[in-house]
Amino acid sequence: MAIIEIHQLTKYYGKHKGIENVSFSVEEGEIFGFIGPNGAGKSTTIRTLLSLIYPTSGSATIFGKDCIQYGPEIRKQIGYLPSEVFYYENMKVIDVLKYSASFYQNVNMSRIKELSSTMELDLNKRIEDLSYGNKKKVGIVQGLLHEPKLIILDEPTSGLDPLMQQRFFDLIEIENKKGSTILFSSHILPEVQKLCTRVAIIKDGSIVKIENMDTLRNDNYKKFMVELAAPVSDGFFQLDGITNLVKDGSQFRFLFRGDINRILDLMHGQPLKNLLIEEPSLEEIFMHYYQKEATS
């Protein structure tokens, strides 16, 4: 059963385009990645699902019900972590969480305590005294305390240190195992790769691609920077899987997709001055998608 179904969703802010004809669906039990650079329309889509904003055209259903018409009813089973977390500044953490809990029927204090201790959140501090990362933890706890069936995460890891990110991912996986569906929005590819089963890529307000994570993983691009000690022939880097090749003196930069051993074999025996292998940024992957779209 589809938990979220989005049909041709379009949102214009006056003349400025937010999203256009966005359609995808998220199945029950999935961890669905929603990825794209900042300003691509991820938050716009999510905020429409929560009826914080109203669509210009198109529609969306959650649990099979229209997300605007049945908003309050649907939101009983949604946990939402906004990308920017702000709470009532002069309230204590525990009071914000209790206030949040007062909107739901099935929350007990032990759940709040449990989540907060996992995330190492001090309940007695005032919101205004919290660092950004700690506010994010408040967001995480308030998003999960009512054990929602659908968890919507908008850039959840920003501000969290690596240890806390890991704890958070563990929490999400536990909720997922218990049966929650997760919509995970991010602009960081590796964290989506780690967690998600399927992913929708959005750019400039439109969905570029919806793909299984396995497929995307096979599209495993690496970014290379090779500086050679001795000059090589022009055709040296003409290898299947190398794209975006740039030559700058003795330095070569390119993206490579495929078995990494082939590159190492190629360079075997060549004296190197320098070698850098990186994860390409999302932008670079996108660039590749656009090139593919332009040629096809």
Binding site: L52, P72, S100, F103
Partner: peptide, 17 residues
């Protein structure tokens, strides 16, 4: 102004309420 709107309005209550 305090940016708490996302918190409050994503709760399961209608805007009218």
């Amino acid at each position: 102004r305090d940016k708490t709107a996302d918190f409050l309005y994503s709760k399961p209550v209608s805007r009218c309420r």
